[in-house]
Simulated scan of single mutants.
Amino acid sequence: MTEAQAAVYIGRSIKTVQRRRKCGQIAFIRDGGIRYRLEDLEAYLAERRVAATTPPTPSRKSKYRRASAGSEQNRNALCEFI
C-alpha cells in the first residue's frame, strides 16, 4: 500500500509514517516509490501495543452532597408553605 493508505491504516499522518520509516520502525519496500505491506504495518502496531496493567478508574464522585432526610423534609415543608 502507499504511504497515504498506510497512514490511514495506522491512524497517523503521512509525515509520521515517513518519520517511522526513516527511523527503521516500519519496514517498507522500495519499488520505484515507497510501499508498505499489511503484515509489516500490523507488526508495527503489535510492537506498540501495551497491555492494561491497572484496573479501570472508578467512576467519579458527585460534586454535590446527597441531601439528608432532614434537609429533604425541610425543603418539602418550605415548598408547601410557599
Score class of each variant (00 low, 15 high):
Ile82Glu: 08
Arg37Leu: 12
Arg30Ser: 10
Glu47Gln: 11
Arg21Val: 10
Leu38Gln: 13
Val50Ser: 11
Glu42Gln: 14
Gly32Val: 04
Cys23Asp: 15
Ser59Cys: 09
Ile34Ala: 05
Glu39Asp: 14
Glu39Gly: 06
Arg75Tyr: 04
Arg75Trp: 06
Ser13Met: 10
Asn74Val: 09
Pro55Thr: 12
Ala4Trp: 00
Lys15Ser: 13
Glu72Arg: 15
Asp40Asn: 05
Gln73Pro: 00
Gly11Gln: 04
Val50Asn: 05
Thr57Asn: 02
Ala27Pro: 00
Cys79Ile: 06
Arg20Asp: 10
Ile26Trp: 01
Pro58Asn: 06
Phe28Cys: 09
Asp31Leu: 14
Thr54Ser: 12
Leu41Ser: 01
Gln5Ala: 15
Arg35Thr: 06
Arg65Lys: 14
Ile82Asp: 07
Ser71Leu: 09
Ser71Arg: 11
Thr57Tyr: 03
Arg30Phe: 05
Tyr9Met: 08
Ser62Cys: 10
Thr54Asp: 03
Ala27Phe: 02
Ile26Pro: 02
Ala27Arg: 11
Arg35Ala: 08
Ile26Arg: 03
Tyr36Arg: 03
Lys61Met: 14
Val8Cys: 01
Gln5Phe: 00
Ser13Ile: 12
Ile10His: 04
Arg75Phe: 02
Gly11Leu: 07
Arg21Asp: 08
Ser13Val: 11
Ser13Phe: 07
Arg19Phe: 08
Ala52Phe: 03
Asp31Tyr: 08
Gly32Trp: 06
Val8Asn: 06
Arg20Thr: 04
Leu38Tyr: 05
Glu47Tyr: 02
Glu80Leu: 12
Arg35Phe: 14
Pro58Ser: 08
Thr2Gly: 01
Lys22Asp: 13
Phe28Lys: 03
Tyr44Ser: 01
Asn74Arg: 15
Glu80Gly: 02
Arg19Gly: 05
Ala51His: 11
Lys15Glu: 14
Lys22Glu: 12
Ala46Trp: 02
Glu39Ala: 13
Gly11Asp: 07
Ala7Tyr: 05
Glu39Thr: 09
